[in-house]
Amino acid sequence: MTEHTLSEAEYDAITNAAAHWCMRLHAVDCTDAERQAFKQWHDADPLHAFEYEAMLEIWAVADHLPRVESAPAVPARRPRLRWSRLAVAAAVFVVGMPLAAYTGWNLGWIANSYQRFEAGTNVRHVTLGDGSEVELNLGSELVFANYKNERRVTLKKGEAFFDVSHDKQHPFVVRAGQGQVRVTGTRFNVWMYQDQVRVTLLEGSVRVTSNQALTRNGLSLSPGMQASYKAGDHQPQVRETPPNDSSLAWRNGKLVLDNLALSDALPLINRYLDRPVMLADNSTGGLRIGGVYNISEVQNLVPSLPKVLPVYLTQNKDGNPVLNSIGQRPTTH
């Protein structure tokens, strides 16, 4: 588990590196070796990816700046870069200077603080820089960044329950999968597995979007409602929270499977596993399972499934366990 609030020097170093890579990756002479080095830097820390995304936004904004006609000559065989972009990128590269940092903050391009939180084998309670309270489920990870115009959380993986500090002037945005949840102050839960996301609202109101590029297509939730989406969905699917809903049982250390089809139960189970369990076919996915399990012991559930269901376990070529219904067992001679 880690909790890290960046010092000014650390923040400057990441910002400068992000600006450097933004310029190099847009340069015509960027090499494959540089691209590989960038990927290693980008993937080494969620904050690197977060800051690089901000640099891309600045780069895009720079495209709307007026042309500078006195751009220096470049070799005729290379495409001419927009000098306005290069000038802005160069300014960003020295964003560690007080004036540049202040300008970036005022324009809403650059956050003035970052926090990263992870939960390992225990549920974890954390306080974000704006005073919002968050509970992280096992194996969950998020990054918080405070911008001038909004507070932004990226849920990298797992599940989190949010009790958001009310601030109407600074919306609280949670990015999860390809969509996002936008609020000003409320209590809600966000569950994510692979490209699937489910939002459960307890208090207040939220607006859920299934695609961050289509923010106007979001749907508003009121307390007692859930929204679900996956990659490619144009809009979230919204329903009332079932009376027997157990999606928040993890806060008490429990996973509740209430007579669910295996196809619906496995995403809830696999969230806690290093190697997800696969289904051999649709008929196996139709088998139903129930029970209450400790979230810290879900890994012990998989070997026991043949004892409670008409299934047997095999393994695919990638090493993942596969559930097969007894009726599909191949005959032997």
Rank of each mutant, 00 (worst) to 15 (best):
D281F: 13
L248I: 04
Y193M: 11
D32Q: 09
E3T: 08
N316P: 11
Q235V: 13
M97T: 11
D274P: 03
E118I: 07
A90E: 08
L279K: 04
N244M: 06
V311K: 04
S165T: 05
T2G: 10
G139R: 03
A13G: 10
S247Q: 04
Q194I: 05
N112M: 04
R182Q: 14
D43M: 07
V126Y: 04
W41F: 07
N324F: 08
R151S: 15
A91P: 00
H4D: 01
Q235P: 01
F162H: 15
V143Q: 06
R116P: 05
T103F: 07
R35G: 13
N252C: 02
L6E: 02
K254T: 09
G232R: 15
L142E: 00
V206P: 09
N189R: 12
R216F: 12
H4L: 02
W59Q: 07
R35H: 11
L47W: 09
R207I: 05
A18C: 03
T241F: 07
A231H: 01
Q328S: 03
F93D: 09
S84Q: 14
W83M: 13
G104I: 05
S205C: 05
S205D: 06
T186E: 06
E3G: 10
W83I: 14
V92M: 07
Q40T: 15
S296G: 14
N282V: 14
V94I: 13
N294M: 13
I14M: 06
V298N: 04
H234S: 06
Q115V: 14
L273Q: 12
V174T: 08
L309R: 06
G285K: 03
P310E: 00
D43C: 05
F50D: 08
E203P: 00
P171S: 12
N217H: 12
L313W: 04
V74M: 10
L248P: 01
P46M: 00
A71C: 06
A76N: 06
G131K: 07
H166D: 00
G232F: 11
G185N: 12
L47K: 12
V164S: 00
S220R: 01
P75W: 03
Y147W: 02
G177Y: 02
P267F: 03
E159G: 07
R288C: 01
T103S: 04
T15V: 13
Q178N: 09
E135R: 13
T332M: 07
Y312V: 11
F50E: 01
P306V: 02
D130E: 05
L266D: 02
V94P: 09
L81H: 00
N252S: 11
D318H: 08
N252T: 08
R151V: 13
V68G: 11
Y272R: 06
